[in-house]
Amino acid sequence: MYDRQREFRFAWKCPLWFCFAGLVGLLVWTGAAYAAPDSARQQVVYHISDGDPDRQRSALRNVANHLNILGDDGADIVVVLQGDGVTLLLRPDAQPQLPGGLSANATGEVRIGIEDLRLRGVRFEVCAHSLARRGIDDDRYLLDVDPADLVPSGIDELVRLQRAGYTYIKP
C-alpha cells in the first residue's frame, strides 16, 4: 500500500504524463479543427468571366437560389468578376469605352438583382486588370464598387479564396 502511494506521487512528476496530456489536447484540437467546417458558414466563390447578359442574369439567379437554400446568414458568398464578366457591374455610360461585342450590363433587371444580392450579404469583387484591358480606367463607370472590392487580379483572388477554404463554382 505504502509503495503504491509513493509510486502515485512519482507518476505525476513524470514528463510522460505531460506528454500524454499534451497529446490528448492535440487530439481534441485536431478533432475540433476537422469538425469545424461542417458547423461554420458555407463559403463559396462564384467566378463569372462571361459577358453575355443572359448568362450573367442566370448566374445571379443561381446565387439567389443558393442563398434561399442556405439562408442569408448561412453562407458567405463572394462573386469574382473577371475577363468579360466585369461587364456585369458596368453602368450604361461605360458603353462607348467598351470594345465591340461587349455590353455594359448593370442596368434594369440585372442592376436590381445585384442590389438585392448585396443587401443579402453577397460581395462583388471586380478584377482591375480585366477592366483596364477593356478600356475602363475609372471606377465611376462601376455600380457602387467599394475600392476594397476592386482587386488587382481576379485570378489571384480566386486562388486566394480557394486556399482560404472557399468552394469554387463557375456558373
Partner: peptide
Amino acid sequence: VPSGVAELAILQS
C-alpha cells in the same frame, strides 16, 4: 436536389 448550385457546394465540402 433542392438547389443545383447548393448541391455543388455541399458535395465539394
